[in-house]
Nucleic acid binder design. Structure first.
Lengths: 242, 242
DNA sequence: CAGTGGTCTAGACCACAAG
DNA sequence: TTGTGGTCTAGACCACTGT
């Protein structure tokens, strides 16, 4: 392994990484105390090894619960790619779920109006949702949608529905991502809480516009999504033409 | 500050973050020992505070040297954006530099030939360079360029030259980014060494194709770049049309 | 050489989650 | 109540960097 000159905790982390590869995602990993006993070392050294695995996005840890094998699913964002979270996650082999935090209706601010190509003051739905993979929190989204496009939206959107499905079934809208911007940023305090992150680690910030190709350039949604990089392997790809 | 219930090292980190904001990038920060003395706490707690700042990309630390105020410069990647590292860094207010690690010439593998739209076995230049911001390592790139487009390339490329400048001055080529793919990945061991990273933290992996709009779709360069996320705030943006 | 961060030990108390 | 990880202390030795 060429782990000769390396620190103890790195060697242990490499060893554990091999062992982890054989386990199912979600399996509980040996605790700090167990590791310390197993390798005859101090608990802080065992902790350092587990933290190393956390930095590699191979495990997730939480206080009182333990350390578990993580799964990092690819999530591709490209012009024209399907904007559906559920579909993307399922394609990658995970089981997606969504929970609506809030749905409100309000007049558009200038900034939101610009994004949605509507007039300031027109009614917009503001939808906040949390996204899960295998029942683990993976991200959260604030969506802005033009009210006039979506009559009876509130009654048609159930708490755990895919927005994409609701748009397709009830409104015949098959939106496509026409603009996106991605950045790795320190999580704002409130987002860190939403995503169950301690401290202020880095989080993907994805802003995107969805348009319906059949609706003469109407913007269907402007969304701001925060994604945990340990849950989602965000891949952004674009071509200039075609 | 609402730092009431928070751990000591977080409170200290928040306090230091405010102090850091007043300092020039590159300034040395108080050492672990100094911090421990100043706040009457253990060195490990001081260390935890500095590591928290490192996680926030606000400082860079290295063994034997110390802890220094970091600067994270925005680096925008979008279709048609200038592919020049030097220009991008300068625009963001940093001083860019480049060091060539190696320049070799070899027949194209199938994979590289596909990218460059040439035949397998045709001669390609393979150029490995390291990129710096304010003399701090920020990334490294392996570039593949078709040999037939670049006669006398070796003598025209100096060690510290901007590839973009050489292409423009000597070959009249003004290439544009036509395809790009970005992902946050664990740094492979050799890349981690190149980028002076300890452990195996996450690194941006940017693959891109450059084409010259005046040269009938000839691919000028295929590049694979690894970027330190603490040095570069990578922003990817695309629109579907125009 | 002196100063830096990197690692490690042997303790301790705590908050949190789950049964 | 038990076990988990989170925090903190008081030491120690080491490797690396600069002078």
């Amino acid at each position: 392994m060429a782990d000769e000159g390396k620190p103890r905790y790195q060697t242990i982390a490499n060893l554990l990484e091999q062992e982890l590869a054989l386990l199912e995602p979600g399996t509980q990993v040996a605790s700090e105390h167990e590791l310390a006993k197993r390798f005859g070392m101090n608990r802080l050294t065992a902790k350092a090894a587990l933290e190393e695995l956390e930095r590699r996005y191979l495990v997730r840890r939480s206080k009182g619960r333990g350390t578990y094998v993580a799964r990092r699913l690819p999530y591709v964002v490209s012009p024209g790619s399907s904007p559906s979270w559920s579909a993307s996650v399922r394609t990658a082999g995970g089981s997606p779920s969504i929970a609506t935090v809030s749905l409100t209706e309000r007049p558009a601010s200038q900034a939101i109006a610009d994004k949605l190509k509507i007039d300031k003051g027109q009614r917009v739905f503001v939808l906040v949702r949390r996204r899960f993979i295998d029942d683990l929190i993976a991200g959260c989204t604030t969506s802005y949608l033009p009210g006039d496009l979506l009559p009876r939206f509130r009654s048609r959107l159930s708490d755990d529905a895919s927005l994409h499905d609701v748009l397709a079934e009830h409104y015949g809208i098959e939106p496509v991502r026409t603009w996106a911007k991605v950045e790795l940023r320190p999580a704002p305090a409130d987002i860190a809480v939403h995503l169950e992150l301690r401290g202020a680690p880095m989080v993907h910030r994805l802003s995107a516009l969805l348009e319906d190709p059949h609706a003469q350039g109407r913007v269907v949604e402007y969304g701001e999504t925060w994604l945990r990089p340990d849950a989602v392997d965000l891949i952004i790809e674009f071509k200039q033409s075609d």
